[in-house]
């Protein structure tokens, strides 16, 4: 078994409205910053033991499917690195 850290990034599918990101962008603009657009995403870092990086990724993908992301509105990415 090897220790891995998996990073799951959950973001809204393109085209799904993100009112919190829009509000954040307006706040940055109020502070005087210039920017074109802003998107937000949730990042989860998960430490786990697995036989291989692939096994770790499989387990974490299932976590994303079953809880961390909502497939109706989210896409997600999983990256695995040895801890």
């Amino acid at each position: 078994m090897t220790a891995y850290t998996a990073t799951v990034t959950v973001r809204l599918k393109s085209g799904v409205l993100d009112p919190e990101a829009q509000t954040t962008q307006r706040a940055l603009e109020r502070l005087g910053f210039e920017l074109e657009s802003l998107r937000s995403a949730d990042v989860f870092e998960i430490d786990l033991e697995a036989d291989s990086a692939e096994a770790a990724a499989d387990r974490v993908e299932e976590m994303a499917e079953r809880l961390l992301a909502n497939p109706t509105i989210h896409d997600y990415e999983v990256a695995v690195a040895e801890a």
Binding site: P19, E20, T72, I73
Partner: peptide, 17 residues
Amino acid sequence: GCESALTPGAFTTNESA
């Protein structure tokens, strides 16, 4: 209900935030 797939779709952040 939507999160448990009893019903379709999702209820998420209001447009007004």
